[in-house]
Amino acid sequence: MNIKMGLNIALYLLVTLGVASAHTIMQAVGVNGKASGQGVGIYMPSDDSYQSDVKSDSMACNGSPVTGFTSSSQIISVNAGDTVTGSWLHTLTSTGADSEADNKVIASSHKGPVMAYMKKVADATQNPSAGPGDGWFKISEAGLISSTEWGVDALINAGGVQTVVIPSCIEDGDYLLRFELIALHSASSEGAAQFYMECAQISVSGGSGASTPATYAIPGIYSATDPGIHVNIYNNQGQPYPSGYTTPGPDVFTCGASSASSNATTSNTVIDASALVGSATSYSVSDVSTLVASSTSPVTVTSIVPDGTATSRISGPTIYPVAYNATSSFRPMGSAASQPVASTLMTMRKPYPSNHHDHEHSCA
């Protein structure tokens, strides 16, 4: 056995035999920086265990075999375009590191993506029964952000606070807002990925209603053999940062663009956006949008960071530009050494072709 293989096996045994066995619970929701109380508007368990069966109805809004749930009769009011946060804790009383987790959120060994979905429902208080089935669309994802950071790492660095933006172009009404993270430390075995999710009950107002997202079923968005779910995340040095990673599930829905499945087999064309301006110091979002729109094949622009941030290159599409507008200024990649955090990265993607509920939509 060579040294590199030994490191991989040692790290795998460390995180799968219970040395780092901490779990997590999404336990509070906030709107525009104002947090609701613990358990308000959430179908929340006291049990911090995970789901592992991607075919189970419990994949939608949690459920058996997880136990200790408390329902809420409250619905949280949000405006379309609002920033909404979900707060994760290792246990409902976590205030810091303990014998299982090296921080208050989840063991740092539990690397993986962090995502959020929405589903329009007749009555958000019918949570979790309204969860299983079609109607879900993804509004946020952070997978392998860089060579040293996963979505879970960014979540830990943010104190367990997951931040999403409610699309401004959706219809008003009740929605389930599904916060999710997937721990991949033992996912080299099929069926061993750990799924954590909770659904918040929200009512959206002020939306333009100009776009109806392509929707997907939960269960149904994931397969146990998906490359982002059945995966060995460890590299040849035994570190949990592979050279690439495919975030599972559909593409993120954004206003003004069609929504499509990320499971399509069409490959992307990756364009270095610095070529747009040559030696110029900045370019506009509209410049990049024009490039993406004019391409005849799917396009991913990866080399953009906002002015004033570090400029290390990221690998692969991770973050959509939901927080930026057409007047924002961006600059080409430079030589700064530090890596920007997830919230400062910008990736613009022309979606994959798909025949799964796929339509062209735009927001006025």
Rank of each mutant, 00 (worst) to 15 (best):
M1W: 11
L11C: 00
L11I: 11
L17P: 00
H23E: 09
I25K: 05
K34P: 00
V40A: 07
G41Q: 04
Y43R: 05
M44R: 15
P45V: 03
D48Q: 13
Y50N: 13
Q51G: 11
D57C: 00
S58G: 03
G63N: 02
P65N: 04
V66F: 04
A80H: 04
V84E: 04
T85D: 03
T85K: 05
W88T: 03
S94V: 02
T95P: 05
D98K: 12
A101K: 08
V105W: 12
V105N: 12
H110N: 13
M115C: 11
M118I: 07
K119E: 09
V121M: 10
A122H: 10
D123G: 10
A124C: 10
G133L: 06
G133T: 10
W136D: 03
F137D: 03
F137L: 10
F137N: 06
I139E: 04
I139P: 10
E141D: 11
E141N: 09
E141H: 07
G143H: 06
L144K: 15
L144C: 10
E149G: 09
I156L: 01
T163L: 01
S168L: 03
E171P: 00
F179W: 13
A183N: 08
L184E: 07
H185N: 14
S186R: 13
S189D: 10
E190I: 13
F195I: 05
M197A: 10
M197R: 12
A200I: 08
Q201K: 03
G206W: 09
S208Y: 08
A210D: 15
S211G: 12
A214G: 15
A217D: 08
G220C: 04
I221A: 00
Y222Q: 06
I233S: 06
I233G: 02
N235R: 08
N236V: 05
P240R: 03
S243G: 15
G244I: 05
Y245F: 13
P250G: 02
V252G: 04
T254V: 13
C255Q: 06
S262L: 04
N263I: 03
N263F: 05
G278M: 06
S279P: 01
S284Q: 07
S286T: 14
V288K: 02
S289A: 14
S295Y: 00
V301F: 08
V301L: 15
V301R: 07
S303D: 12
V305S: 08
A310I: 00
T311K: 14
S312D: 10
A323K: 15
Y324S: 14
A326R: 12
A326E: 09
R331E: 08
S335K: 13
A336R: 14
S338V: 11
P340G: 09
V341E: 12
S343T: 13
T347D: 15
P353T: 10
H356L: 14
H356F: 13
H357Y: 12
H359M: 10
